[in-house]
Design a binder for these strands. Structure first.
Lengths: 256, 256
DNA sequence: CGCGGAATTGAAAATACTCAAAATTAGTGG
DNA sequence: CCACTAATTTTGAGTATTTTCAATTCCGCG
């Protein structure tokens, strides 16, 4: 585990007083400070509220809660989900270190979804009002913020493509390829990683049942694309996996 | 048809010289200028590039094209779509007057999708670089822009819910309710409107085949929720339609 | 008036779901 | 550290919703 900080499960630590420092954060090349000058990073540091530990299964925020902060993930993983009219979840994303949470709340000043930690995690609290003030003084920051929001829009468009156009095996392959890419961008292995979410969460996100996900795992294993041990996944044949995701595989339901 | 301007299909009109004026635009309560003071609107007017007519089936922009402008729809309708690895479309949205196009291009400086007019339409060209310059001087504008981007994020999250969680009849009902709401916000009838897109486009957007859409139209008609004449739809029973969308209907496949 | 794209409808097929049971894993307390 | 329990995951069999394929009808448009 090469995470920035080891998790210390002691509530006695005064995290509010521990100001987050962007310059020393291992995620600053992926996060909000990307491309800022040193003095600009310092100004950003000054407005950041502090760090917040979020234990596994704990909620970072919930729907309808007033919006005050954006959250940058320092380490750990989260899921965000909406709840439909019948009270069922729909997971809209899995977020990892360096990614920003809460942008969907800007439009209504209230959170539009729930965010729950998939493992013990830590975030930076970024008071949005103060960030907006800073935008007027640090144009580079503003431009990068727009890029991040835009990136979130394109990410969601890609999920729409996945849900609207792909068959179950394509969806699941695309999901694994996506995780692989994101871990690679963070300096982790692109071929071997742990799934931080349950099969149920994966199925929910991909618009499939838990049984379908389990069957696809077994099938990909049998086909020799991947190895699976509990939640540890090893991608053996990335090319084939991408081909499945693209739908350019020859034998869609092939059992050997 | 109560559109701001009648369509004049003459290419001889010099639209580039016709500066768009936000203050006189009927969409200014839905569009970028919302909440601005008169003098601020004037500053926005000054940077707006001009109007552009886009004929039915014509492309406003296409994927990978360099990003220069956002586009505000003055009148007409558009669809945006991505193309998957096999060259198939996935429609990611239908846009109407007062809505902003092109925000997904900010992250990469290139357009991430294609935008095509569903009917003869007109847009304002908003040079993004100049808009960014203006943000520094008009904080209200910046704040509203962030709300619009955030709104796009939540819109897409709602589509993810639709595609990931809903059955065919729910999706189609939710689609009609969504159109109804948006027309109401524009001062048009919420119960009677024309579908500007083909059945194929609807199916594509909803992750369904054209045949399924056609069958659902027939079923809703038979159930007495709606009346349909070609592309004209009248919602007879909005409550039932919303119940179908919510999945709280008693008899899901009921034929009477 | 007739051609061609778009839409509707029907029947057969397939993908993914539901229900059910078994197996495995994780969590808890002794 | 082990044993027990609860939760998660896997696997199987049958079902259902939606798709595919095909034929027909409907309109718009030249």
């Amino acid at each position: 585990m090469s995470q920035p900080l080891p998790y210390v499960p002691q509530s006695s630590i005064n995290l509010g007083a521990l100001k987050a420092s962007c310059s020393s954060c291992s995620m600053h090349q992926l996060c909000l400070p990307l491309g800022l000058e040193d003095n600009e990073i310092n100004r950003l540091d000054q407005i950041i509220g502090g760090r917040r530990r979020v234990a596994k299964d704990e909620r970072l925020y919930k729907v309808d809660q007033p919006f005050r902060n954006l959250y940058a993930i320092r380490f750990g993983h989260f899921k965000t989900y909406q709840v439909n009219a019948r009270g069922e979840e729909q997971i809209t994303g899995f977020q990892m270190a360096g990614e920003l949470l809460g942008m969907d709340a800007i439009s209504s000043d209230h959170h539009h979804c729930d965010a729950v930690a998939l493992e013990d995690s830590e975030v930076c609290e970024i008071p949005f009002e103060r960030l907006e003030d800073l935008f007027g003084h640090v144009p580079t920051l503003l431009r990068h913020f727009h890029r991040i929001m835009s990136q979130e829009i394109t990410r969601e468009q890609n999920v729409m493509l996945l849900l609207g156009n792909m068959r179950a095996d394509q969806r699941f392959a695309a999901f694994l390829v996506n995780l692989s890419t994101r871990y690679a961008a963070r300096g982790y292995s692109s071929t071997s990683f742990a799934l931080r979410m349950s099969r149920e969460d994966i199925g929910n996100y991909l618009g499939l049942t838990i049984e379908s996900v389990s069957r696809l795992l077994s099938r990909f294993k049998k086909q020799g694309c991947i190895k699976v041990d509990k939640r540890e996944v090893t991608i053996i044949d990335p090319v084939q996996l991408k081909a499945i995701a693209a739908g350019t595989e020859s034998c869609p339901g092939g059992s050997d």
